[in-house]
């Protein structure tokens, strides 16, 4: 039986200036219920691709299907509805500065779950924050008063608030020390294991993390998918660029 895809990208191209393509014909499937990691050197179009998937940028050409729906054909209202299926953990968590940790997690519930009472929303927010491993003594603090790791946990709790079908992590371990990096990786794995139906898409340049948490890994280079498959495909690949990336571990030197 063919595998169902949460996200399907067909021949996606994006150019910010004439003739200069940041994305140059991306074809990629993110299967349902799996963790897919997108890796690549800096400046290969990972973040631009992510912004297309989230609908923040519009493609020059090509198709993006989210849960079977071509997002270019959707009206604004339909896009808003579709976005409720997403939970996004941004690179620096993107928490609202003027809201406490608890209010940040409550925010998507206040916006989209008008059917719930305040008590029910609070219960969900507390549950998600506990699930993300954030101690209760930090719930009333502002984002500026907690550490980077705590902010990531709070960001994850906010991403999980609406029980999304697709979880997106944008460079979740960038700028973190090795211990926090492992903690965030475990957090992603635990979150996925607790909700096996959800699909996760992680954008990273951390190869070790990609191999550890990813069911599938896709490597981007020059706006194209260079290699896509289970992690072992990368170890066996004789493509010089892939071999170099694998041997160097992280960054392009």
């Amino acid at each position: 039986m063919a595998q169902e895809n949460a996200i399907e990208i067909i021949d996606l191209k994006k150019s910010f200036s004439e003739g200069d393509y940041v994305l140059n014909g991306i074809n990629l499937n993110v299967p349902k219920g799996k963790v897919t990691v997108i890796i690549g050197f800096s400046g290969t179009g990972k973040s631009v691709l992510l912004k297309h998937i989230l609908g923040i940028l519009k493609p020059t050409s090509g198709t993006i299907k989210i849960l079977g729906k071509d997002i270019s054909l959707l009206t604004d209202d339909e896009k808003v509805k579709l976005r409720r299926h997403f939970g996004v953990l941004f690179q620096y968590a993107a928490l609202f500065d003027d809201k406490t940790v608890l209010e940040n997690v409550m925010f998507p519930l206040d916006e989209h779950r008008k059917d719930l009472s305040k008590t029910q929303k609070l219960q969900i927010a507390y549950e998600k924050l506990r699930l993300s491993g954030l101690d209760e003594k930090h719930y009333k603090k502002l984002p500026g008063e907690i550490s980077g790791g705590m902010r990531k946990r709070c960001g994850l709790a906010r991403a999980l608030a609406l029980d999304p079908e697709i979880l997106v992590y944008d460079e979740p371990t960038t700028g973190l020390d090795p211990i926090l990096t492992e903690m965030v990786d475990n957090l992603i794995l635990n979150t996925h294991n607790q909700n096996k139906d959800s699909s996760s898409l992680v954008v990273s340049h951390d190869l070790h993390a990609a191999f550890r948490i990813g069911d599938y890994v896709a490597m981007l280079d020059s706006g194209k998918v260079l290699l896509h498959g289970p992690p072992k495909v990368f170890l066996e690949s004789d493509n010089p660029l892939v071999a170099r990336f694998v041997s160097k571990g992280v960054n392009k030197k």
Binding site: L54, I56, R84, F90, A94, F107, H112
Partner: peptide, 18 residues
């Protein structure tokens, strides 16, 4: 401006809030 550069506006958008 600071909400824009710290991706808070993007976060609003992907949460389905205009």
């Amino acid at each position: 401006g600071s909400m824009r550069v710290s991706e808070q506006i993007d976060a609003l958008e992907v949460m389905g809030v205009d």
